[in-house]
Every structure is written in C-alpha cells, then in structure tokens.
C-alpha cells in the first residue's frame, strides 16, 4: 500500500469520495453544522452543473457504447492550510458538491482526518449500508423457492 505524505492511500481517498458523493445533502449538512469550528475555505472552482456520458458494454461485457447522460455537479475548494478538496456528484445540487469537496479537503488534512473520518464518513457509510441492507432483505423475500413435484410411482 502506498501512503502519501499525509498518511492516506489513494484507495482510501477514492472510498471516502464515493461515500460523500453517495450521501444525502441533508446528512452532509447536518455533519457540517455540528462541526464546532468550521474551517475557512475558498472556491477554486465554484459548483458547476454539467453532464457525464455514461457508457455501457454491448451484451454486458463487450465493446463500449454511449448509453445516456447523467447530470453531475463538480466543485473544488481549498481550505486555509492548502489542502484541495474535489467533488463530482450526481444531480444538480450545488450544496452537495460543495460540502463533499470541503469534507474531501478536511480528510486529506492530518489535523482533521481522524475526526472527520470517525464522526462523518463512518456515520454516512453506516446509514448507507443500513439502507442497502433493508433493500437487500426485501428483495430476498421475493426469491423463488422451487419445489419439484414428484410424478409417477
């Protein structure tokens, strides 16, 4: 595993960025509001909405094709001590992208990493996992149990 000078791996950053992008804005906002000292930040790229063309694969595993677009919003911010946070999130919500970018920057900062990781990211992941689990259990209830009729004899 390759740690950078701030003590996290690229894979770890990818994971938290995915969790922040997949979370509801109101959950991110709650976590932000709860922070006792809000760090100062400036925008390097203000929230901007655009699209990303989603590609599929012919037959599920063959050559790529352009399937259709999704709306996405990007934002890049820099916190006072220089760490730059980026976010690309689905949808039109500027605040979602902004908060995700702020948390991304804080998570790269050794001063804030542990606190944000424990109080924000792990909570978001828990609520996400719980939601997924619920759906997976309801789906499981619709699984067919075949029984075979024995004929003859």
């Amino acid at each position: 595993m390759q740690f950078n000078e701030n003590g996290y791996t690229k894979r770890q950053r990818q994971q938290w960025m995915g969790i922040l992008a997949g979370s509801l804005t109101k959950n991110l906002e709650n976590s932000w509001q709860k922070m006792p000292e809000k760090p100062e930040y400036k925008h390097l790229h203000k929230p901007e909405t655009g699209s990303i063309m989603v590609r599929g694969r012919a037959g599920g595993s063959g050559n790529s094709f352009n399937f259709g677009e999704v709306t996405a919003t990007r934002c890049t911010i820099q916190i006072k001590n220089g760490h730059v946070g980026s976010a690309y999130v689905l949808g039109l919500d500027h605040r979602h992208a902004e908060l995700a970018a702020i948390f991304d920057a804080l998570l790269q900062d050794p001063l804030h990493h542990c606190e944000i990781s424990n109080s924000v990211v792990s909570r978001l992941k828990d609520s996400y996992d719980k939601h997924k689990e619920e759906i997976a259990k309801k789906t499981a209830a619709t699984k067919v149990d075949f029984f075979t009729m024995v004929r003859g004899e």
Partner: peptide
C-alpha cells in the same frame, strides 16, 4: 498540482 491553483471565474455562468 492542485495546491497552487488560483480560482477562475467567480460566477462561472454569468
């Protein structure tokens, strides 16, 4: 190198 970047437009759309 993102750390040394300066912002662009302050209001991208306008």
């Amino acid at each position: 190198d993102l750390n040394k970047l300066t912002p662009g437009f302050s209001d991208p759309v306008q």
